[in-house]
Design a protein around this nucleic acid. Structure first.
Lengths: 205, 205
DNA sequence: TTTTACAAACCGTCCAGATGGTTTGTAATT
DNA sequence: AATTACAAACCATCTGGACGGTTTGTAAAA
């Protein structure tokens, strides 16, 4: 086999093995030895691709980010032309999907990443771009941020195993958050009220 | 010194030391040796109080829960008699406070807990009670859940270092979420719309 | 004197990374 | 086409340190 192809294949296999381990055995069991065993490779082979264990984690995170991004892109592409806030809706749907995965790798990866704040920062910066897009398209950015935050809260709670709501409740809340027309009408009420009694948040968002 | 007092003191010192380590050095550095070193005790001494490391984590979690609970109780006690949804507001304020702590121990503890799902379940169950209370007092439970989820999203994002919003933006969003009157008026719009075009979430929440 | 609280030395295991070597692929030279 | 020279991928083994937990010792309290 061609060298580069071989290399790429084992690298992908290593990442897949890491994901398997992290979900099956928990993040505490993710060792280089375990990865090597899982993908039928050797420790040396793994360490040839990733010079340190942190490099493995970084690759894992990048893989996860790519997944999330393509999920988002898919939902964005699906959105009908008439929608007011396609990015927000795609984001909400992405979060709904993420929340649905109870044995989430995301949690495991997050916990494996706990000691690497710089990697987390990368995620946050990517998130900032999405937020920008959502604010830009929104009639009222602060309402968009509320909807986004709520979806995020549901997703993060579920991923961390902290969500006390049933799946049905979660689902219908996601439905509600997504319902553009509903928020449009609520928005006008809020706006009217804000103008009547101006609040701090008005000029900030 | 009296035995029991001495014991209690070292136990508290151990927990405090664990919190110091976990925030200063990261959860990966939380070892029994480190705790002993930090609080000027010995490994044997620590293991006299906590038979295993998991017991330390459990104690740490309980400590954190107590903190959170008393914070919530404080805000609840502060709430003025006229408010419609005191529990929700107290919860939102608690979450605001939690979010404000950037070097949060919560994150570190969460990640240290990653391999102990049963401990996480305890937190979730406690959360369920709060949710019940909030639903009970709410005119529209689904709106309350949206507000709560949004506050939770902001808090969790901040704690995990994933929140791309500025502190000001976060603060004003919390203000907005807390504004009972505003949501009341929005609620009536939503309700009107729901009745006009009934949705799935209506009967579920 | 028995129990409690702690200390110090120690044990077994796990694991990241280093090292030295083998196989496989590649490209230039003859 | 065959040979040579090199590079990349990969493997088996070792090591040094960290860490959870145990055992043994000790001094004070009960």
């Amino acid at each position: 086999m061609e060298n580069s192809a071989r290399s790429q294949r084992t690298r992908a296999a290593a990442i897949q093995a890491a994901l398997t381990i992290i979900t099956r055995d928990g993040p505490g069991r993710l060792t280089i030895d375990a990865i090597a065993r899982e993908c039928g490779s050797s420790k040396g082979g793994i360490l040839h691709h990733f010079r340190t264990k942190d490099a493995v984690l970084k690759a894992l995170l990048e893989h996860q980010i790519e997944q999330g991004e393509s999920l988002f892109d898919g939902y964005l592409a699906q959105s009908l032309p008439g929608r007011h806030e396609p990015a927000l809706e795609a984001e909400i749907e992405s979060l709904r999907t993420a929340a649905a995965h109870p044995k989430s790798t995301t949690f495991a990866i997050a916990s494996a990443l706990a000691d690497n704040p710089e990697l987390i920062a990368a995620v946050r910066e990517r998130e900032a771009k999405h937020v920008e897009a959502m604010k830009k398209e929104a009639a009222d950015p602060s309402v968009a941020m509320v909807r986004w935050s709520a979806a995020r809260g549901l997703a993060l709670s579920s991923i961390l195993g902290l969500c006390p709501l049933s799946e049905q409740e979660r689902m219908s809340l996601f439905d509600l958050l997504r319902d553009d027309a509903l928020w449009d009408s609520a928005q006008s009420c809020i706006r009217r009220r804000k103008e009547a009694a101006p609040q701090k948040e008005k000029q900030l968002l």
